[in-house]
């Protein structure tokens, strides 16, 4: 499972970085989104990978904490997803405005010669 996750994060990051360096605004948005998926998976993996372990303690009170997954990274991922979502939406709006004002979808607002 570690290998699968590592490859997934690597592929997402690689494609994301490549897309961020492309000149079109659409590629920029997709690139940043891919990067943020990679980062979210990465944060999640920092809580160590566990199969079938719940992050929330049951109602029966104190149990052995070692039986549970670390809940903190999962909470962090939630926050990061929400914030990433909002800022990406904002970026999309700015991209549309830029497209409208400059008539070009190049990140500099004009084609490079």
């Amino acid at each position: 499972m570690e290998l699968t996750l590592a490859i997934a994060i690597g592929v997402l990051t690689g494609s994301g970085v490549w897309l961020v360096f492309r000149p079109r605004t659409y590629q920029l948005v997709i690139g940043l989104s891919l990067l943020s998926y990679a980062v979210n998976l990465f944060i999640f993996s920092m809580g160590r990978l566990r199969m079938g372990a719940a992050p929330v303690l049951g109602a029966d009170g104190v149990a052995n904490p070692a039986d549970y997954a670390d809940p903190v990274p999962q909470a962090l991922v939630l926050t990061a997803i929400v914030i990433g979502f909002a800022t990406t939406a904002l970026l999309l709006v700015v991209l549309l405005v830029s497209r409208g004002l400059t008539g070009s979808d190049h990140v500099d607002g004009r084609e490079s010669r």
Partner: peptide, 26 residues
């Protein structure tokens, strides 16, 4: 709008680095 676009893109990328750093430390 044009310089705002650059500003937002760079800061979004920097925020992702921030998250990577924080989670590594955690």
């Amino acid at each position: 709008v044009r310089s705002g676009l650059h500003y937002i893109a760079i800061n979004l990328a920097a925020s992702l680095l921030f998250l990577i750093g924080v989670s590594l430390i955690y």
